[in-house]
Design a protein around this nucleic acid. Sequence first.
DNA 1: TATTGTTATACTCTATAACTATA
DNA 2: TATAGTTATAGAGTATAACAATA
Lengths: 171, 171
Amino acid sequence: MLSETGNGLYDDAMDALPDIIVDPVECRLGYQLRRASAVMMADLGMALAEIGLRPAEATLLSLIGVNPGRSQSDFGRQLGIKRANMVPLTAAMLKAGLIEREATDGRSHALGLTSKGEALRARAEAIIEAHEARFRAGFDDKRLAALVADLIAIRETSPDGRHVAPRAGRE
Amino acid sequence: MLSETGNGLYDDAMDALPDIIVDPVECRLGYQLRRASAVMMADLGMALAEIGLRPAEATLLSLIGVNPGRSQSDFGRQLGIKRANMVPLTAAMLKAGLIEREATDGRSHALGLTSKGEALRARAEAIIEAHEARFRAGFDDKRLAALVADLIAIRETSPDGRHVAPRAGRE
DNA sequence: TATTGTTATACTCTATAACTATA
DNA sequence: TATAGTTATAGAGTATAACAATA
């Protein structure tokens, strides 16, 4: 269909197109969020790879560090990670000797850090802080606070567009 | 090791823990970006599923719509999608009759919208606009502009923490 | 030599459904 | 009946390496 006439429909592509694509999605909030998030996640992933951690593992280490004794499901809810997906995550960290578990309930498992996990948590937080500082470089305190507040507001927006406060991940 | 004494290390979990987890990662920019992005992406995915599109496909439709004749690689670069990953994306849209391709070069393929693709692009943009409006609800124009500017600044932050202007995805 | 499109492949994160055992 | 943990599985998205054809 395109080559019916022998002349291309897009021949102007060969000489007259501007260098810069016209981008109608640059003004979309969701698109910009996704691109910015991808950049920071890639940078964090590279930085944490040096100590053998993935972002989700480092985040969980931080959270367990200040909340020892909460259940696996509690941590999952707080981070927006589903129960089913917490299993391989905690299994890998158990196997690596970073966390320990104890049945509190018969069905609940309390999580805590081993000494090895605590040591790695400290290293991870130093790496994360350096990573965060790189991206905070262009922002003053006020702008950064406004940005974080906006991101939380977006996360807490309900499907009808109202800003509410669920605060934790759903399942 | 945990149950050596018969008393759990985390027995306080059974009575004294506060309802709300202490969350040391809430102040992290990368974490908040990821959570906010995930919420918007999930909402957009649900909304676009009604017309059988995924977010990446709808975005590509919008971009081709105003830039017909650019190559597959051009669109990939603009959206930060690697060449290799553009293949299944464009293949599915070709198969669905949404886009058309024409060799401009021997190696480059110019992309354009079919009439069916143009019609679906219009529907997708209406859905996306309604989706965006839901999340913009809590922001005035000034705050929204500042937020988008901040997100672009983050995306353009180089590995050394300087804000530069690469603007397109890397490979 | 560099670029375009392609294949094949792998990893991460996420999602659902179903099962068990406990509360 | 609801919850915690588990298993199995599937689907997106993204990453690399390599190849052929072309510029």
